[in-house]
Design a protein around this nucleic acid. Structure first.
Length: 952
RNA sequence: ACGGAAGUGGCGGAACAGGCAUACGCACUUGAUUUAGAAUCAAGAUUUUGAGAGUUCGAAUCUCUUCUUCCGUACCA
């Protein structure tokens, strides 16, 4: 019987469906194991071959775990709210719900085509009201919570209200935005609105006016991690800063916990480093500098309080309010124009001119808290209003930026750290001895820091302080396609959250998706939805990370009506044992989910403190981008393309790259990729606007079907530019897994993606090796068949050699799956098949375990072979073979004999021979004299079972 | 600039609690089968681990120096 993948795949997909092979039960006596994939956003272009890389790995892992006797949860769902569907709706009028539903079906089919073992009955869709009901519910819990610092956990806001009622802010240990003090009686005297505003400063979901990343093109604000280099991550549109009333989540309350518990996670160092970096904890001191002739003091944060005597001026962020009040009349004009200069700068300009030193003097002076010296106060954009207090004491001798600034502005520089003992040490190394620093003189930097803070505290001018880079998360989006806030306002501006029993607050129907003027969501146009029961609804919607911050909990109990998941389900499944996904979510999704999870943990709603125990980042599979060079200048309105080997005759900005379908390219991906006449004709049929264009290469040119200047159909070659880059619609290089599966079969596709290299590594898609994997599968099939392709299995006992091959493979594969080394698993399967083929092995005792061994990798072929071996139930419900070390024991060992570490000879000794025996025996080995040259070896090293080394 | 990862044949990559470098696959060469191609089978060739030093009987693996590439962050006080 021939091996025809498409027939087998169809048959077993149906079987799995009919027999609910992938169904996962919550009531199992087996040990649980939770394998999770980062769920996709179902975009209109579907999956390309890069997406499944991680899914294949996790599928293999979960099938393996299942065969090892675990109850494995391996679900899949969809992150279905998001910008692209809404942009598409704006362009076409198709409702995002409709386009999303369509894309979702397409994704499901593509995924099923690859043979994943998802339990689809547990699938989630973040845009489904039965799902976002719980997203809204958790949001309201955040709204109704504050962070208690004495117990270091979140608590219900009522506790805070009671405390304020009884004691005001006296002895209140709660995390808040801005420190503010109030007495119990003053609190009672506040109006409800004033009380509400006061408490807003503590709520974990809160509203404030904040500078946000406004993207005009998208008509919404974006989170910091959705902005890349001043442009939106989605779409690449410019982003500017804008002040708006926004909902935020107080993730900063959890900064320390998010940082500390990273240590216990099995994540890659790179990923942990990114999170640590993003949290950005730094220890130092907060110091107040009095301002000459003003009541206020200037608050600064510094990690180097030891250098305080080197502070010769102060710098504050231009955006701070205090700038207005301290600027002297004489400096007013200069300061004003500088502020204007800064505010008119786009994010991009800011990036570009990062190195340029600019600033303005306010005319005011701060007083040095120890020396009383007058220090001029400057404003400059290099001081960020969002970090620390937005003000610094500038120490030009020990800070590079301060130094540049001082040099440019002609300000004083006082050296305070003698680094002569530490050659090449930079100021950030914290090394050296203090000089010119009064009571700190002679101290090493580290002691000086301590002593300086002590002195500051003693003097009452500041305290020890820890600062974080992490900012509160902006939670409002001025868009339609997201979760509506279950929040309304009355005419005094008081907030009325929806009652739990009224959730979900469903997204109303809409037909015009364009943003409303004034930066409001399209929902603002729906007057009869916005106005209800005398209240006004919030018209913003929640951001993309809302649903994805907790979706993995829903899989545990996806149809629960009473809770996001039952206590029993949560107790059983606990947390995710293995999470597989891309690095692009390193700081966004992974940080927010950890934050939500810790919050739910504080409320006693989940049993674990961290959601994802082990995390693997799969690499990206990139595509090849092929482009033709076109001259910018047209000749009589006709486009002129030039071959890639002619570009040296032009300036770099004379031409542009035009991406071309990779199918039109010969030898695509190589340095010599080119297009001949037939390829160009295909290209012209596709891009008819170029039908009159001229194509020039070294041998001549081609235009409208005619060759010129010596070119002929034979020698005409337009070389194209090949680059490795994103697989994307706009580069015409997307490869659909469906096509690969249709050609080679799903098993081959799966194994080939694994065979490409380590999962963590990025690599370009390249089908050069896929035939090798396809050949392997056919060879595997042929092991179970006779030469004339009939089923043929031998019931005789296996030989020692055959058992050795089998168990060697079991050992290797079992170990490598655990370490996520799937590429080497595929190799060892190839080795096993090659060796068994050589022995012409067709014994059940070997081939049955081999079929089980390969089942997680190639679920279809193994299922078919398993059935033919006489089994009625699925191979995926069988047990994984167990390694037996005794099968590898040999009577004899072949040793390499090395001379001074270089291998020269080989010799076989009994495996029972002792180290001493071998030392003697080795001297009698044939040919050894040639290398000893009559001398006695100085030393003989024998590592039993491995090697022998003679030192001559 | 800082942080992370990595440099091994023509290519993808294997081998790192130090012990036969290049498994496995692609490409390549030769042969067999075939009208030819494809497919299949058999045989074969290449390179000394980015560079330099050190530790060791022995280093791709450990240490130091240096170079290169990729990823992330970016005026964080």
């Amino acid at each position: 019987m021939d091996f025809i993948p498409s027939d087998i795949e169809k048959k077993w997909k149906q079987f799995w469906k009919d027999h609910a092979v992938n169904k996962v039960d919550n009531n199992s006596t087996k040990e649980k194991f939770y394998v999770l994939d980062m769920f996709p956003y179902p975009s209109g272009s579907g999956l390309h071959v890069g997406h499944p890389l991680g899914y294949i790995a996790s599928d293999i892992y979960s099938r393996f775990k299942k065969m090892q006797g675990f109850n494995v949860l391996h679900p899949m769902g969809f992150d279905a709210f998001g910008l692209p569907a809404e942009q598409y709706a704006i362009q076409t009028g198709v409702h995002p719900a409709d386009s999303t539903a369509k894309n979702l079906e397409m994704y499901k089919n593509q995924l099923n085509n690859i043979g994943f073992n998802y339990d689809w009955s547990r699938s989630v869709n973040t845009s489904d009201p039965s799902f976002y009901k719980w997203t809204q519910s958790i949001f309201l819990k955040l709204y109704d919570a504050y962070y208690d610092l004495s117990e270091d956990k979140a608590k219900h806001i009522d506790g805070l209200k009671q405390h304020l009622e009884l004691h005001g802010t006296e002895q209140l240990e709660a995390f808040c935005g801005e420190e503010q003090a109030i007495s119990s009686s003053d609190w009672k005297g506040l109006s409800p609105k004033e009380q509400e505003d006061f408490i807003m400063n503590y709520r974990l979901a809160f509203r404030k006016i904040s500078y946000v990343n406004w993207c005009e093109e998208l008509g919404t604000v974006l989170a910091n991690d959705e902005v890349k280099d001043g442009f939106s991550e989605r779409g690449g549109f410019p982003v500017e800063k804008k002040a708006m009333m926004q909902w935020s989540l107080r993730i900063t309350a959890y900064a320390d916990r998010l940082l500390n518990s990273l240590d216990n996670l099995e994540w890659s160092e790179a990923l942990k480093a990114m999170q640590r970096n993003w949290i950005g904890k730094s220890e130092g001191a907060q110091i107040f500098f009095p301002i000459d002739q003003h009541q206020e003091a200037l608050e600064v944060f510094t990690t180097r309080p030891d250098t305080i005597f080197g502070a010769t001026f102060m710098v504050i962020a231009p955006e701070l309010d205090i700038v207005q009040s301290i600027t002297t009349a004489a400096q007013k004009e200069e300061v004003q124009s500088y502020i204007e200069y800064v505010s008119n700068k786009s994010e991009k300009d800011r990036m570009a001119s990062a190195k340029e030193v600019t600033g303005a003097f306010t005319g005011a002076y701060a007083l040095h808290p120890f020396s009383g010296k007058k220090l001029p106060i400057w404003i400059s954009e290099y001081v960020l209003k969002d970090y620390g207090s937005g003000a610094i004491m500038a120490v030009p001798s020990d800070d590079d930026r301060d130094q540049l600034f001082a040099e440019k502005m002609g300000l004083e520089i006082i050296p305070v750290v003698d680094k002569s003992m530490h050659e090449g040490a930079s100021s950030s190394d914290k090394k050296g001895v203090l000089i010119n620093s009064d009571f700190l003189n002679g101290l090493e930097v580290k002691e000086a820091i301590k002593k300086a803070i002590d002195a500051v505290e003693e003097k009452g001018i500041g305290t020890r302080k820890i600062n974080f880079k992490l900012r509160d998360a902006n939670y409002s989006r001025q868009r339609y396609w997201g979760e509506p806030f279950p929040i309304s306002y009355d005419d005094q501006g008081l907030i009325h959250p929806a009652k739990a029993e009224d959730l979900p607050l469903e997204l109303p129907a809409l037909d015009n998706f364009k943003p409303t003027a004034g930066g409001k969501s399209p929902l603002a146009r729906l007057d009869n939805w916005v106005q209800h029961e005398g209240l006004t609804r919030e018209t913003d919607t929640m951001p993309g990370f809302a649903g994805s911050s907790w979706y993995f909990l829903r899989y545990m109990d996806p149809n629960n009506q009473e809770a996001f998941a039952s206590k029993e389900a949560l107790e059983y499944w606990q947390d995710v044992d293995l999470y597989v996904g891309g690095t692009e979510h390193a700081v966004g999704h992974l940080m927010y989910s950890r934050f939500w999870h810790k919050f739910l943990y504080d409320l006693g709603l989940v049993p674990t403190n961290e959601p994802f125990k082990r995390l693997i980042n799969q690499g990206m599979i990139q595509g090849v981008i092929e482009s033709l060079y076109m001259l910018k200048e047209k000749e009589n309105g006709i486009a002129h393309f030039i071959s890639a080997d002619l570009t040296d005759q032009y300036q770099e900005d004379d031409y542009v790259k035009i991406s071309v379908y990779i199918e039109y390219i010969k030898e695509y991906g190589s340095n010599d990729s080119y297009m001949d006449q037939a390829c160009i004709d295909q290209f012209l049929a596709w891009r008819s606007e170029f039908k009159e264009a001229k194509f020039s290469c070294k041998t001549g040119s081609y235009q409208q079907g005619n060759f010129d200047n010596g070119a002929t159909a034979e020698n005409f070659r337009m070389l194209t530019k090949s680059e490795v880059g994103k697989m994307s619609k706009r580069y015409f290089n997307v490869i659909n897994p469906d096509d690969v599966v249709a050609k080679y079969g799903a098993d081959c596709f799966r194994m080939y993606e694994m065979f490409l290299g380590p999962v963590e590594q990025s690599k370009p898609w390249d089908t050069n090796g896929i035939d090798g994997v396809s050949k392997f599968l056919r060879r595997l099939w042929s092991l179970y068949h006779s030469v004339d392709n009939n089923w043929s299995i031998d019931e005789q006992a296996a030989s020692k050699a055959e058992l050795k091959i089998l168990h060697k493979t079991i050992k290797k594969v079992t170990e490598d799956i655990k370490n996520f080394g799937f590429n080497t698993c595929v190799s060892s399967f190839m080795v096993a098949v090659n060796e068994l083929k050589k022995l012409q092995c067709s014994k059940r005792e070997i081939l049955e375990p081999l079929c089980l061994l390969i089942a997680p990798f190639a679920p279809f072929i193994s299922e078919e072979l398993w059935e033919k071996l006489g089994h009625q139930t699925s191979v995926h419900q069988a047990s994984y073979p167990i390694f037996d070390a005794s099968k590898l024991v040999e009577d004899e060992v072949t040793y390499p004999i090395c001379f001074n570490g270089k291998k020269r000879l080989e010799a076989t000794f009994a495996s029972s021979a002792s180290r001493e025996d071998i030392m003697e025996l080795v001297l009698q080995v044939d040919g050894i004299d040639k290398y000893l040259e009559g001398k006695t070896p100085k030393k003989i090293i024998v590592v039993p079972g491995r090697m022998i080394n003679l030192v001559v």
